[in-house]
């Protein structure tokens, strides 16, 4: 009896220390989680506290008018960011329109068609693409793509088209990796069931695999879109940053992120607040995108 009791106590003690260890780990994880939420919260509060008063004062005209002349040494400011909002939307949507089909096709190829040797070569290449700093993309585009566009189509070369090309490449890794996972997560049985009925490989991909992976693919596209709208450095270098409503895809354009990055270093007073207000606008855009992404990935897999 005594021996059994002692053993039980020992077991309890051991599990007691184990529990303490568990609790400690849990505490650390909790602190990590809370601090990241706290950081996000701080950023939101700061951006909104700086930007919202300006938005309230400048009113809807801030979003809908087209003359952007921040307060400088010479005159009071004129605030209209419509061309910048438009620029961000055109650049983002265009980049996604080019990048998404490419990325999805590449993902299907990687997940379904590529022989293992090719896959072993391609997967690290895609990861490497994701690791290239955006300023390097921008510089490459400035030295290669911009002169090419200038030579082919005239104008400045720094243009919507240059942004589309470089951004569509930059969002590829996101779209490819998330979509590849989505396609590979489709149960093997679906594919076998389709092939066993005499469907061709392409019919199987088109009618079964892609629809079954559609929520993941949609999420990848929206993540890519988030990356495109948030990208700053590469766009700054190749956009031309002209605050006008662009007349063609060869015209220079400015985006929310690039304008903030370009002017924040100098901005004081109302100009600075206006840039924060642009940050609020950008934040709302990204919030909408994240919401859509969550919606897409939660959607039941029926089609």
């Amino acid at each position: 009896m005594v021996v059994t009791f002692n053993r039980a106590v020992r077991t309890l003690r051991r599990s007691g220390t184990r529990d303490a260890g568990e609790r400690f780990i849990q505490l650390i994880l909790l602190v990590c989680a809370v601090s990241s939420i706290f950081a996000i919260f701080l950023i939101i509060v700061f951006v909104f506290s700086q930007g919202v008063p300006f938005l309230a004062e400048a009113g809807l005209g801030f979003l809908t008018t087209s003359v952007w002349l921040p307060a400088d040494s010479f005159a009071a400011g004129t605030w209209g960011i419509f061309p910048i909002i438009l620029g961000s939307l055109i650049v983002t949507l265009g980049a996604v329109a080019i990048g998404a089909p490419l990325g999805i096709a590449c993902a299907v190829f990687l997940a379904e068609i590529a022989p293992p040797a090719v896959r072993r070569l391609l997967v690290p290449s895609v990861s490497a693409l994701a690791g290239v700093p955006s300023v390097v993309y921008g510089f490459f585009a400035l030295l290669v793509i911009v002169p090419w566009i200038r030579g082919q189509f005239g104008g400045f070369g720094t243009s919507i088209l240059a942004c589309w090309i470089i951004l569509s490449v930059m969002i590829l890794p996101t779209i490819i990796s998330v979509s590849t996972d989505a396609v590979r997560a489709v149960p093997r049985e679906y594919k076998e069931g389709s092939l066993a009925m005499g469907a061709t490989r392409w019919q199987t991909i088109r009618s079964v695999l892609i629809p079954a992976a559609s929520s993941g693919i949609m999420a990848s596209v929206i993540l890519g879109m988030g990356r495109a709208i948030g990208e700053t450095m590469a766009v700054l270098l190749v956009a031309g940053n002209s605050v006008t409503i662009p007349g063609s895809i060869f015209a220079p354009v400015s985006t929310l992120t690039a304008t903030i990055a370009l002017e924040m270093g100098y901005a004081t007073g109302a100009h600075q607040q206006a840039l924060f207000a642009m940050g609020v606008v950008l934040f709302v855009f990204i919030l909408i995108l994240t919401g859509l992404a969550n919606l897409a990935s939660r959607r039941r897999v029926t089609f």
Binding site: P187, E189, Y190, E192, G193, S194, A196, M197, G198, V208, P211, A212, V301, T302, F303
Partner: peptide, 12 residues
Amino acid sequence: GMVFQKPNPFPK
């Protein structure tokens, strides 16, 4: 044609 061990209707 083939019927598999685990029923595999498409998510349609």
